[in-house]
Design a protein around this nucleic acid. Sequence first.
DNA 1: GTCTATAGAGCGATAGAC
DNA 2: GTCTATCGCTCTATAGAC
Lengths: 204, 204
Amino acid sequence: MLKPCSARSSAKREAILDAAKASFVDNGYAATSMDMVAAKAGVSKATIYAHFQSKDELFAAIIRRRCDSLACAIDELTVSESLDARATLTAVAHKLLTMLLDPDTLGIYRMVVAESPRHPDLAKVYFDAGPSRGKERMAEVLNALSRRGLLKVPDVWQALDQLIGMLRGEHFTRALLGLPTSDHTNLNRTVEGAVEMMLRAYAP
Amino acid sequence: MLKPCSARSSAKREAILDAAKASFVDNGYAATSMDMVAAKAGVSKATIYAHFQSKDELFAAIIRRRCDSLACAIDELTVSESLDARATLTAVAHKLLTMLLDPDTLGIYRMVVAESPRHPDLAKVYFDAGPSRGKERMAEVLNALSRRGLLKVPDVWQALDQLIGMLRGEHFTRALLGLPTSDHTNLNRTVEGAVEMMLRAYAP
DNA sequence: GTCTATAGAGCGATAGAC
DNA sequence: GTCTATCGCTCTATAGAC
């Protein structure tokens, strides 16, 4: 579970946001009523409307708060500069996969996907703060390896698409659909296989 | 757009299914009312309930119908047996990517993802008929190449996860979130890059 | 800011005529 | 099978007291 970088809000406002996030994740946007949120947050419905103009705005606030957390977690996605290419890629791969399969990540992503036709602006906010920012962060890792002469990557963005795609493999889709997840052995095998492919293709 | 393999139903029933699919895709499950479906289908609400027991069953019928179409389209995913490894992989990659980025595929997938917490059984039905069946079909293609000595694949399922993951790249996520899609040049480049990786790793 | 109470609209599902 | 009409319920959002 991720925490925000900086928190500055009233206690009730946070309680509402927490309750709303849980309710939205569990029931979906449309099937979540403001009464449910109020009950779970331990406040009255009118109090919610004192903090948020509408159900839509409450939803947007949740996504934006999650984006802040995501961005923070992504920025912390660093790897020691003294490792070789294989160790670096393996480390960053494990961190990424852990982040992707986090229940919070999946729950929010499910909502963003579901509501993207009705809330296209939020989908963009999420994509920029999540996948896009994550890729930029990983590009720095790859570039560092290139600078040290441990990798030769002609197109960093394409290489990252390939690495991330291979890492997600079937695991992410299965988790997103709530299907029984592959065990930890397979996760390690996926990482090893993906790293092997990268090394084979982009060794200097 | 995909069509079902076999159709056997009354005209009104089909009209209801078509209208419901469009409404569910556009508005999401919970935000779609039976009145909307009735209006779009040109029937009365009671007629819908004469054909489907509940809103849930109507939703399930749509997913199942889509699964039939998907399975049919996937079974037709064949490639000439006389092509070399690169041409075969490129052809099957283009077919897969076209299928994945089809607006109908995306719309239904969005719904299945959104409702998977409340309809886990439907998520499994969809996964089996879609991704799982597609992978089995592609395994046959890879096995055929291996049999002809054009490829040496130690673990077919891992190789397929890698290939499919690289092909989806960022395109699928962007399309799923309704973000501006990369142009056709990039799609071709993605295919070429993925095929190149596969050949480099799994050449005999 | 926070509460109780409620307005006003829309929902899923059904009854009963044909 | 198909319709019109309607029941009983829940929803978002607000009014007004404190």
